[in-house]
Measured scan of single mutants.
Amino acid sequence: GLPEGWEMRFTVDGIPYFVDHNRRTTTYIDPRTG
């Protein structure tokens, strides 16, 4: 799974992105792969 505090969501286009609730940021880069 994802690191603690992270969540995976999808855009309206079906593109996955990642929400970091710890820092309240979003990124398209998987936190597991950097």
Rank of each mutant, 00 (worst) to 15 (best):
G1Y: 10
G1E: 15
G1R: 13
G1Q: 14
G1F: 11
G1N: 12
L2M: 09
L2E: 01
L2G: 03
L2I: 06
P3Y: 04
P3M: 04
P3W: 06
P3L: 04
E4H: 13
E4S: 14
E4F: 13
G5T: 05
G5L: 06
G5Q: 07
W6V: 05
W6H: 00
W6F: 07
W6I: 05
E7P: 01
E7M: 08
E7D: 05
E7N: 05
M8I: 10
M8G: 01
M8E: 03
M8A: 06
M8L: 10
R9D: 02
R9L: 10
R9P: 00
R9A: 06
R9K: 11
F10G: 01
F10S: 04
F10P: 00
F10M: 10
F10L: 09
T11Q: 06
T11L: 03
T11F: 02
T11R: 08
T11H: 04
V12Y: 13
V12F: 14
V12L: 13
V12H: 14
V12D: 12
V12I: 14
V12W: 14
V12G: 09
V12Q: 11
V12N: 12
V12S: 13
V12E: 13
D13Q: 13
D13K: 13
D13F: 12
D13N: 14
D13V: 08
D13T: 13
D13P: 02
G14A: 05
G14T: 00
G14D: 06
G14M: 07
I15V: 12
I15A: 07
P16Y: 05
Y17T: 03
Y17I: 09
Y17W: 04
Y17M: 06
F18N: 01
F18H: 00
F18R: 00
F18L: 01
F18P: 00
F18W: 14
F18D: 01
F18V: 01
F18K: 00
F18E: 00
V19Q: 04
V19G: 01
D20H: 10
D20L: 07
H21S: 09
H21V: 10
H21D: 07
H21G: 07
H21P: 05
H21M: 10
H21F: 10
H21Y: 11
N22H: 11
R23S: 15
R23T: 15
R23K: 11
R24P: 06
R24D: 14
R24Y: 10
R24M: 14
T25D: 06
T25R: 15
T25H: 11
T25N: 09
T26I: 15
T26V: 15
T26G: 06
T26W: 15
T26M: 15
T26F: 15
T26N: 08
T27H: 08
T27P: 03
T27M: 05
Y28Q: 07
Y28H: 10
Y28K: 06
Y28N: 08
Y28D: 07
I29N: 09
I29W: 11
I29D: 10
D30A: 02
D30K: 01
D30F: 01
D30G: 01
D30E: 03
D30N: 00
P31W: 00
P31A: 01
P31V: 02
R32H: 03
R32F: 05
R32T: 04
R32L: 03
R32P: 04
T33H: 10
T33Y: 10
T33K: 09
T33I: 13
G34R: 08
G34P: 13
G34W: 15
G34A: 14
G34E: 12
